[in-house]
Design a protein around this nucleic acid. Structure first.
Length: 648
RNA sequence: GCCGAUGUAGCUCAGUUGGUCAGAGCAGCUGAUUUGUAAUCAGCGGGUCGGGGGUUCGAAUCCCUCUAUCGGCUCCA
């Protein structure tokens, strides 16, 4: 019998007969391992554990502890769900059903069945029932003709469409139980590991992501090898919901919406306004040091301004409609971007190469008519304020300026403890050049600049996405996830050779000739609204002291100590500490409870003891009693905490 | 915009199959209490049951429509 050499992850080499499967190898190591094997990585490629190995190979057995093992299980779970659904709703048609970061989904055309989340339990039960049958996943290579025939007979035009795009000779089917699916795999040996099933939500999803095609029903679900893990996961989801900025924003009185004001138009409440104001002050200071100048521009602009910039052609139809004036045919737009205004500021006087770079910054409020279904708390709104700036520079300054902006973004993320972000380099969609403005040459220059800077800075967690660029230039976007794992773009840096051309921007070079500056659009926070939303979720409403709307609350034991409380308040206020007195006729325990629930950073309790010794009893939110402090010592403690956070 | 779900006092939620179903807790107001590290007690006020239309003797409850919110899709200058 021919032997093959299998190299295991610990670099040990073992001999096995040719044709042995990964699962059988697992069995030779331990029975427990064999039970837990979900898939195998053979020569670095994930495949079915039941596939024979015919050559010398490296082998890694994948279990629930491996990302790829989980992915395999979830992909198989999608098949299991499809099988259950096919049995419960005969005649439905299937689109695609992949595994995703947390679980899986399947897009299904339910034909005439009407289905809602009320049906989940029935499907879950069926899935568990089928899983217990230990149905094996059998892979079968099929010819294109055979594949087409099978799904044509089944009347599933979605699968037929997919198969038509595949190359003959590279098509496989997987059979499990009563269900056969077109699938590349890999899959579990059998359905046995799927012990806990939860369908999570249901939604419409356009076939192939194309709005002009039929909307299928997408069902999301997740499975686990143990019921307890499912319970833990669901608990985690519940915890995450508590951090939702929409919930905390209401509870902590940071912002609100009003149907009467309008959808997607946030109202910042006093406490939220403090938070936002502190962030703006912080960034203004950072930018001032980095050579930025603040400018201010109006909220509307003449329609010609946006025709010049290209925004009118690109978004005119999908924006708020123009504002009319008493003058016939005169129209103004609510500004969707600050850049056209800033271009005009640049044009306000002749510029010399010695002036560049010019960095114009503005907290500019813009208005965009986002689709109603897109609006989402503070993360997606119709009126928002960008921490915008436009850098006008010479071509040879682009990279240094870009790096300077990256430093500001990093500085901010660090100050706020944002560690888990990804950097997305957003380039043109090579298939759709007509979506973009400007020459291919300029685009290449701009894209090249960003890619080079990213390389030179050695950024980790960088991904390149084609088709994600703005219509006038490529971007570097800083993406952060919210409490529920949804990814949002915060900071953005964009290199733009196009607008300077459209606005005919120039500077006089040392050669006394006219030259075209390059523009960098940038917003480290992105928008104040979205940034605050993510910040709220990031710290679960427990803001760092320098941002906390309420830093201190003074709790007099009874009204006898009101006078002393007021004296303490005056000291704190004089040191720029945001403090208030809780002079309600309540017991101290109640005042403490309320202060804790409001997530106020520090509680200061004053009574007989404190007044006579001119001290304070300090309690820290989420920590508890910190003991007695002199008034000045307490102020020093807070100002140190604030200074350290802002200067780190 | 599309698919699905939801919308009851300021907040969180009860309201069985349409028939005293307009409720509770918290918040608010009034009074008592003068309080020591996560809820003192008592009383009171507060809702066109998201808006509009319809079915019915009768609608918070059933139907239609609009609107907002939630979960996705699509979009995101």
């Amino acid at each position: 019998m021919t032997k093959i050499n299998i190299t295991l992850p610990d670099n040990s080499v073992k001999q096995f007969p040719k044709g042995i499967t990964s699962l059988e190898i697992a069995g030779t190591i331990s029975e427990g391992l064999a039970r837990n094997v979900l898939a195998a990585k053979v020569n670095n490629e994930v495949q079915d554990a039941t596939l024979p190995i015919n050559t010398d190979a490296t082998l890694q057995l994948l279990t629930w502890n491996d990302e790829e093992g989980k992915a395999t299980m979830w992909h198989s779970s999608a098949h299991l769900m499809a099988e259950a659904i096919e049995l419960l709703y005969p005649g439905v048609k299937f689109g695609i059903g992949p595994d995703i970061e947390n679980g899986f989904y399947y897009d299904i055309d339910f034909m005439d069945y009407s289905i809602s989340s009320d049906d989940f339990e029935k499907i879950e039960q069926k899935m568990l029932e089928l899983a217990r049958e230990k149905q094996t996943f059998k892979r079968r290579e099929v010819s294109k003709a055979e594949a087409l025939e099978y799904f044509t007979r089944k009347n599933d035009e979605y699968k037929v469409e997919l198969i038509n795009e595949l190359e003959d000779g590279h098509i496989s089917f997987y059979e499990s139980g009563y269900f056969t699916d077109l699938c590349r795999g890999p899959h579990l040996p059998d359905t046995n590991p799927i012990k806990a099933v939860k369908l999570l939500n249901i939604a419409g999803a356009y076939w192939r992501g194309d709005i002009s095609r039929k909307q299928l029903t997408r069902i999301y679900g997740i499975t686990f090898p143990k019921q307890k893990e499912l319970n833990d996961y669901l608990e985690l989801l519940e915890e995450a919901k508590k951090r939702d900025h929409r919930k905390l924003g209401k509870e902590l009185e940071l912002f609100t919406f009003s149907q009467r004001v309008g959808q997607g138009l946030p109202l910042w409440l006093p406490k939220g306004a403090i938070l936002r104001d502190k962030l703006e002050q912080f960034l203004k200071r950072v930018q001032h040091k980095a050579g930025y100048e603040q400018v201010i521009s109006p909220h509307i602009g003449h329609v010609d301004l946006y025709k010049t910039s290209g925004h009118y052609d690109k978004y005119g139809e999908d924006s708020f409609k123009p504002i009319k004036t008493p003058v016939p045919d005169e129209e103004f737009f609510l500004k969707p971007m600050n850049c056209p205004h800033h271009c005009e500021i640049y044009r306000s006087k002749p510029r010399s190469y010695k002036d560049l770079p010019i960095r114009l910054a503005e907290f500019g409020t813009v208005y965009r008519y986002e689709q109603s279904g897109e609006l989402h708390g503070l993360t997606r709104v119709r009126g928002f304020t960008q921490d915008d700036a436009h850098i006008f520079c010479r071509p040879n300054q682009v990279k240094d300026e870009f790096k300077g902006v990256m430093d500001i973004v990093m500085r901010i993320f660090k100050a706020l403890d944002f560690e888990n972000f990804t950097v997305q380099i957003s380039l043109r969609d090579p298939e759709n050049p007509q979506k973009y403005l400007g020459t291919s040459e300029n685009w290449e220059k701009a894209e090249q600049a960003i890619i080079e800077v990213a390389e030179e800075r050695g950024l980790k967690n960088t991904v390149i996405k084609y088709g994600e660029a703005a219509f006038y230039g490529p971007k570097m976007d800083f993406m952060v996830k919210d409490a529920l794992g949804r990814s949002w773009q915060l900071g953005t840096i964009q290199v733009d050779y196009n607008l300077p051309e459209r606005f005919d921007l120039e500077y006089t070079g040392s050669d006394d000739e006219k030259h075209r500056p390059v523009m960098i659009h940038r917003a480290p926070f992105g928008s104040m609204e979205r940034f605050v939303a993510v910040l709220i979720e990031h710290c679960a409403g427990r803001f760092p002291l320098w941002l906390a709307p309420e830093q201190v609350i003074i709790l007099p034991i009874s009204e006898k100590y009101q006078e002393y409380a007021e004296k303490v308040l005056e000291f704190l206020n004089n040191s720029d500490i945001r403090a208030q007195i809780d002079d309600r006729n309540e017991k101290t325990g109640k005042k403490i409870r309320d202060a804790e629930l409001s997530k106020i950073s520090y509680m200061v309790i004053v009574g007989e003891k404190e007044e006579s010794s001119q001290t304070l009893s300090v309690r820290k939110h989420g920590f508890g009693d910190m003991g007695t402090f002199g008034i000045q010592d307490f102020i020093d403690l807070l100002t140190d905490e604030i200074d350290n956070a802002m200067n780190q």
